[in-house]
Amino acid sequence: MEPTQDRTPPLILDVWIRAEPAEVREGLSRSRRALARIGFDPERGEEAELMLAEALNNVVEHAYDGREDGRIHLQIQADAGLALFRICDFGCEMPGGHAPSGRIASAPERAALAEGGYGWHLIRRLADTVCYRRCGSSNCLELRLRGASRQDAED
């Protein structure tokens, strides 16, 4: 394995986002532009945006439970090979003090299909590593995503 765990790429974005959907959308747009500027692989950049969207939506909907006065601190450290997303908030702790496993039930019949609960499943599928810590009254979630896939890098 590459020694990605210990590398800390340069800080490319450091913003505070109000915990509501339109601000999350704006934060995602800034993240997308910041990653594009440093030459992060476009396809991996789309995956990063999806992963980050799910993480930020969870803070809005669960940690702050729809309270719109909440604030989210988003920091991105990235180079072309690695992106590290740090998302901190002052909302409720994750249930049981752990980031959810994101397991989804195998698809039942149409009428019984869940309309939610897919966010953590996507985060777990997309992120290379997930680290959640509760520090005093804040939550800190760190998500790592490699840049271009190994196969792409060898081409």
């Binding site: 789309e46 999806l50 969207a53 939506n57 299909l113 869940a114 309309e115 939610g116 966010g119």
Partner: peptide
């Protein structure tokens, strides 16, 4: 772009 809330809307 679609996220899990958009997916949920299509399922609904």
């Amino acid at each position: 772009f679609i996220d899990s809330s958009g997916l949920g809307a299509i399922i609904a």
